[in-house]
Nucleic acid binder design. Sequence first.
DNA 1: GCCGGTATACTCGGATATATTATGTCCGAGTATATGTGG
DNA 2: CCACATATACTCGGACATAATATATCCGAGTATACCGGC
Lengths: 159, 159
Amino acid sequence: MRISEGVEWGLHCCLTLAWIGDDEPVSAPRLATWFELPPAYLSKCLQALVRAGILSSTPGVRGGFRLARRPAEITVMDVVTAVEGPEPAFRCTEIRQQGPGVDPSAPEFRRPCAITAVMRRAELAWRRELAGQTLADLMSAAPPQAAERAQQRHRLLRG
Amino acid sequence: MRISEGVEWGLHCCLTLAWIGDDEPVSAPRLATWFELPPAYLSKCLQALVRAGILSSTPGVRGGFRLARRPAEITVMDVVTAVEGPEPAFRCTEIRQQGPGVDPSAPEFRRPCAITAVMRRAELAWRRELAGQTLADLMSAAPPQAAERAQQRHRLLRG
DNA sequence: GCCGGTATACTCGGATATATTATGTCCGAGTATATGTGG
DNA sequence: CCACATATACTCGGACATAATATATCCGAGTATACCGGC
């Protein structure tokens, strides 16, 4: 089990965009040099965020990405789901119905097995935590230097 | 993000072993035909459970695996950790310290970033749920037919 | 009939391949800007 | 000097390679059983 790096990248980029504000978009190569990340692959992750409606992209020579909603309306869960996909981490393959001498149409199999129930409940608790934190919460939780650095860098790279 | 199938297999096998009882061990090939799983790979997963102290293995012609502790002393978290490994799912690579014009020795970097904190908290909630459920809980949550089928199959395959 | 030695069949355990997924790269379509030109 | 057409540089977006990991397989070391021969 392993959360892809794109999640971390996406969260940091969203936070950066939140600090910069909506005045003008930031391009993927700029964000990549920002964090020393491979530009093309970061672009791929940002595209996923656009498809999820978290970011909005504007093409053109001064285009780039910006937040599609206000920071208080974007949860960490939204970003994680956008990058990782909506499927649950634990996927029951119903091996309890396999093997010799088992009737898959038995009524006991109408309900999910106890193992799946526990795993789903745990994953729900995980999602609940992530859904309870918005980008606005992260902004206030981070040290002030982080916001300053973001805005400073923005002015710097903007030229 | 995706939990490996070995977790599901390990949990089902542990539950089966709990129902069968400690009177005699069950071999990996037998458990494999049980659930129609690849025997060698299932063996690999069971070995991980042995290394974690969840199962005890006995070699020899009538050997196999059995629970090393009582079902009430084995949590779902134990099994998941044994199969998936102890590392957290989210691994912060500290990209906040990367990029031009950042001093990695700045005091603000002594504390983990807000993103990592949220991800860790969520993962902790996930682990807490899994640690709160033992094999004994699963046994009582499952329908009675499951326990019956396990014992019946055990007698059947034992010959 | 009983005991000891031996061969055997079955077990786990780790080293070795393959498949799938995540990571990384590349190039084309499109757009706002800057430039040059004519009026 | 102003308006317009055009060329351009930069953007996103998706199709195409590579690397890492999960999945699957194989074979060797070891042990309890079963068998066989001797006493």
